[in-house]
Simulated assay, not measured.
Amino acid sequence: MKYILKDEYIELYKLLKVLDLVDSGAEAKMVIADGHVRRNGDVELRKRAKIIRGDVIEVAEVTIEVL
């Protein structure tokens, strides 16, 4: 899956919500806090991590390329 970034960055929990991978921001924050999200191959625990162009996010079997 590809996501075209409209601004300089998007916060991680907002990205999950925008792409409908979760039902709410609270659920997104819980998924991140539980260690289910990888950013560029490493577990990302920061809910408000600034996701920028070139980042690759993995949640379950979904891989997101940020363009």
Rank of each mutant, 00 (worst) to 15 (best):
M1Y: 07
K2N: 13
K2P: 09
K2Y: 13
K2T: 15
Y3K: 02
Y3G: 02
L5P: 08
K6F: 08
K6E: 11
K6I: 06
E8T: 02
Y9K: 11
I10L: 03
E11W: 11
E11R: 15
Y13N: 07
Y13T: 05
K14L: 10
L15D: 00
L16Y: 05
K17V: 13
L19I: 03
D20R: 05
L21C: 08
V22L: 04
D23R: 15
D23Y: 15
G25Y: 03
G25W: 06
G25D: 04
A26H: 09
E27N: 08
A28M: 04
K29C: 03
K29S: 08
V31W: 03
V31Y: 04
I32G: 03
A33C: 09
A33T: 11
A33N: 14
G35F: 05
H36G: 03
H36Y: 06
R38K: 15
R39A: 14
R39H: 09
R39E: 11
N40A: 06
N40C: 05
N40F: 04
N40M: 05
G41K: 01
G41A: 02
G41P: 01
D42R: 13
V43A: 13
L45A: 15
R46S: 12
R46L: 11
K47W: 08
K50H: 09
I51G: 04
I51A: 10
I51C: 06
I52L: 06
G54P: 02
D55F: 01
V56W: 03
V56G: 03
V56Q: 07
I57T: 00
V59F: 12
V59T: 05
V59D: 06
E61L: 06
E61P: 01
E61S: 12
V62S: 10
T63V: 15
T63N: 14
T63G: 11
T63F: 15
I64L: 01
I64V: 01
I64K: 00
E65F: 02
E65I: 00
V66E: 01
